[in-house]
Design a protein around this nucleic acid. Structure first.
Length: 800
RNA sequence: GCGGGUAUGGCGGAAUUGGCAGACGCGCUAGAUUCAGGUUCUAGUGGGGGCAACUUCGUGAAGGUUCAAGUCCUUUUACCCGCACCA
């Protein structure tokens, strides 16, 4: 058979659609498999080969599951709200609705051309009213449960995009959207209280099957630490400053305190502080720094001593000075620290620069040279002296603080509350009304969706206000509670809102009464296997686990963790080994590949190029090898003779079926394909195969190269689709050879190989080895010291 | 700085519990087919030495454990990723 990919790809894509084979069934009596891939953001640039790789893994697994008889849900949709679309719309004057529709159409066509087995009846688009109605609904429920709040604090602000960003969106001090520097700005914004779920998100990781590095990254991001809170009395006041520390054991070494520049205690005692001018100047200086500058100046500590203000160390009653410095942040702990220069590097640097005393309380280092952070015997610490373990010293100190009523054990998280808003047009309107009498009031559930109004000029305001604020008919409304005049919230939700629950909608995408029916959720959830990019581990993956856990807590979903298993694919690099980017001009367009080589070659190549989880550079010539492989596969139809099994290659078939079946489960697609290539080589060498054997091979190949497989399946006389044909099985007995070739070593060096029965005993194996001519010659005149036989592997004779 | 990972031919990459290093593919060499290019087929292909059978070295580097190490232990170098003044 000749391999004419252009014709067969069109033909089978049409057949699949006609027969609806990839539609998840509503028959809930069958075992289910829910495979999920991260739905794309439909950008104007179109699809990238990286998208293809991201979807190919679960595509193969989902196709295999269907052949194994599962009811498979393998959905796709579009995460379409967001800044790139809006920015493009502003630039071109085309409305974002239209831009989105055009891009979705483009993406859909591209995905279909690759032959992905998505269920196209369940497509979701986060910007459609019947979808974002439920995004708003979940937000409203969070508002009711007290998880939504507004606060004026320092926020991450991107001056370029003119939006407030969450901590997750400003990692490394750069805006996640435009990669420009972020500044800190004091602003009144919306937050979701994700920190309330920090512990649940952490504990939930124990029972899910995520790749270890994914779990670890989430654990680090959540950043739980155990320590103590302690109150330091303010000199001459019946008031105290509260600190958090993970090292209460070092409290006798405290020689000063540092508080964040924005700490409210400064304003509270502004009258008794004698150098307010200097403090204000320092504060202004800090506010000007970008996040990037702040982290770059790590080594060089700055700060100002607060004059006319001091606190008392509760451990020893000594009076100590207080400084403000931007190395202490308001957003973590209490915004104040006890400084122990002898045993903390940052405090050490600061003490050195400002000439503050350094008191050693743990032996083991040289505090004249550097801070010592290791373990050792406690000294200069009154009742702690002589203790040698950190845990014991910490416990004693906490006991002491508790007894005095000035401190207790405490836990802190690095994760911060989720700044949940965008001062932009293309997003879900926040369903809240501001009433001068009632305060913040939720838009009634029956009024959802709160529609995003149509508007002409949706450019963001210079002062960082949302474009929606310009529409008076939208802003002015009546309070749902008292009926009086009120104003609508004009911020929209951030990009991550819609994707925080989309996997639930797929279970029942056309439901008008609920985001999904209880029955559908009971059956389909949790997602059995979720694959996506590493870049989402501390963003989307955390956010969606949070939303889902919230829905579980209020009884809306049946399971607490949404994803039973999570894996990640590696990047596809450009042919130059660099990350693909438009500016480097090394981007490969999947359309070009499909045109030139066909969808099956593209699919096989992407999975064959290397370990699925690792990054690998694109190589056009390697792809030719995959094309050659599929051409040789097509050529198998000319070698078919008779039915049944061919003795000579039977074992190879059974081994291959076993290998491919196992490798797919481990996402070792590259070795699965290699095994099929080995089989093909064996068949060509042998010169023929039977019809039944070809049937086995075609089904094995089907998840990888489905178009060619369907075509060959049909030429074998099958009337039904290969996509739902039963997955091949193997006979374990036939994967084991009767005789095996094993290595014979003398003193650990390979000298010969012998063929013996697979179940040969030690004596037989050694006799066979000694009988080998070369071995016999080498052993001539030597004394055998030791003989080792590992069945099926090796014989090693140690001789002198 | 902290946490995690990687290192194997000319290239991408394979190697259950330690057991024949380099599967599979690319590339390359020679030959056949072809008017030619391409395609396809056959043989070969880690380095050094040898006409050859063979021999010797070889998994970032240096040590070690073992009959046997890519794999285990110690030390070390380079690169990649994540977080980053988290008290």
């Amino acid at each position: 058979m000749k391999y004419n990919y252009t014709d067969i790809e069109k033909k089978w894509q049409a057949r699949w659609e006609e027969e609806g084979v990839f539609h998840a069934s509503d028959d809930h009596s069958k075992p289910k498999f829910y495979g999920l891939v991260e739905f794309p953001y439909p950008s104007g640039a179109g699809m990238h080969v990286g998208h293809i790789k991201a979807y190919s893994g679960l595509e193969v697994i989902s196709r295999k599951r269907r052949m194994e008889g599962y009811n498979v849900l393998f959905p796709i949709g579009f995460d379409a709200y967001g800044l790139p679309t809006e920015n493009y719309a502003i630039k071109t004057g085309i409305h974002p609705r239209k831009v989105t529709d055009m891009n979705i159409e483009k993406f859909t066509a591209q995905l279909k051309r690759v032959g992905f087995s998505f269920d196209w009846d369940r497509v979701v688009d986060t910007t459609e009213e019947d979808y974002y109605k439920w995004t708003q609904w979940i937000f409203r429920r969070m508002f009711d449960e007290g998880l939504v709040f507004r606060a004026k604090t320092l926020v991450n602000y991107c001056p370029h995009c003119k939006v407030v960003l969450s901590n997750e969106d400003s990692q490394g001090g750069k805006c996640d959207i435009c990669h420009n520097d972020i500044v800190q700005k004091s602003k009144d914004v919306w937050y979701l209280r994700i920190t309330e779920y920090a512990d649940k998100l952490l504990q939930g990781l124990d029972k899910v099957d995520y790749l270890p590095n994914i779990k670890l990254q989430q654990e680090n991001w959540i950043g739980r630490s155990e320590g103590a809170f302690a109150n330091f009395q303010i000199s001459g006041q019946d008031d105290f400053l509260r600190i958090y520390t993970t090292r209460p054991d070092t409290m006798f070494g405290v020689t000063f305190m540092v508080i964040a520049p924005e700490h409210p205690v400064i304003d509270k005692y502004r009258d008794s502080i004698t150098n307010m001018d200097a403090l204000e100047a320092y504060r202004a200086e800090c506010a000007k720094k970008t996040e990037f500058e702040r982290t770059q100046l790590v080594k060089d500590k700055t700060g100002v001593k607060i004059e006319g203000f001091s606190v008392i160390n509760p451990a020893n009653g000594k009076e100590i000075p207080v400084y403000i410095s931007d190395y202490v942040m308001m957003g973590y702990g209490t915004g104040a620290i006890m400084a122990v220069p002898a045993h903390d590097e940052r405090d050490y640097d600061f003490a050195r620069k400002f000439g503050i005393d350094i008191i050693e309380v743990i032996r083991g280092g040289d505090i004249a040279e550097a801070a010592y952070t290791g373990d050792g015997e406690m000294v200069n610490s009154a009742f702690l002296d002589g203790i040698t373990t950190k845990a014991e010293a910490i416990a004693k100190m906490i006991e002491f603080l508790s007894a005095k009523g000035v401190g207790e054990r405490g836990v802190q998280f690095k994760m911060k509350d989720w700044a949940f808003n965008r001062q932009r047009y293309w997003g879900e309107p926040i369903p809240i009304v501001h009433c001068p009498k009632c305060g913040m009031v939720g838009v009634p559930y029956e009024e959802l969706p709160l529609r995003l109004p149509d508007m002409e000029n949706f450019a963001p305001g210079e002062g960082g206000e949302s474009p929606l604020a310009k529409i008076e008919s939208f802003v002015n409304c009546t309070c749902p509670k008292c009926g009086g005049p009120a104003k609508r919230e004009t911020d929209t939700m951030p990009q991550w809102a819609g994707s925080s629950w989309y996997f639930l909608r797929y279970c029942d995408p056309h439901n008008t009464e609920a985001f999904a029916s209880k029955e559908a959720l009971d059956y389909w959830m949790p997602v059995d296997w979720y694959n996506g990019g590493m870049e989402h581990v501390t963003r989307h993956l955390i956010y969606s686990r949070f939303w889902h856990r919230f829905l579980y807590d209020i009884g809306e979903v049946p399971v607490d963790e949404p994803y039973a298993k999570r894996t990640a694919q590696g990047l596809i690099l450009g042919p130059d080994g660099e990350k693909m980017s438009k500016s480097k001009g090394n981007v490969v367009d999947p359309n070009d590949v499909v045109n030139e080589y066909g969808a099956d070659v593209l699919r096989v190549y992407i999975l064959f190029m290397g370990d699925y989880a690792s990054a690998a550079p694109w190589s056009e010539s390697s792809m030719k090898g995959c094309k050659r492989f599929l051409e040789r596969v097509a050529g198998l139809t000319d070698l078919v003779k008779g039915t049944g099994e061919t003795e000579a290659i039977t074992s190879l078939f059974h081994k291959t079926v076993k290998k491919v079946t196992g490798d797919i489960e481990d996402m070792k697609f590259n070795t699965a394909i290699a095994a099929m290539m080995t089989l093909i080589n064996g068949i060509y060498e042998h010169g023929s195969l039977t019809k039944d054997e070809l049937g086995v091979f075609v089904r094995l190949l089907c998840p990888f190269a489905p178009h060619l497989s369907e075509e060959m399946w049909e030429t074998l006389g099958n009337k039904t689709l290969c996509a739902v044909a039963p997955w091949p099985t193997w006979d374990e007995a036939k994967t084991v050879d009767a005789t095996v070739e094993i290595a014979v070593q003398i003193c650990g060096k390979l000298k010969s190989t012998i063929r013996i029965a697979a179940d040969a005993g030690k004596d037989d194996a050694l006799a066979a080895a000694r009988a080998d001519e070369r071995i016999a010659a080498l052993l001539e005149g030597k004394t055998i010291v030791k003989e080792i036989y590992v069945p099926g592997k090796i014989v090693n004779i140690v001789a002198k």
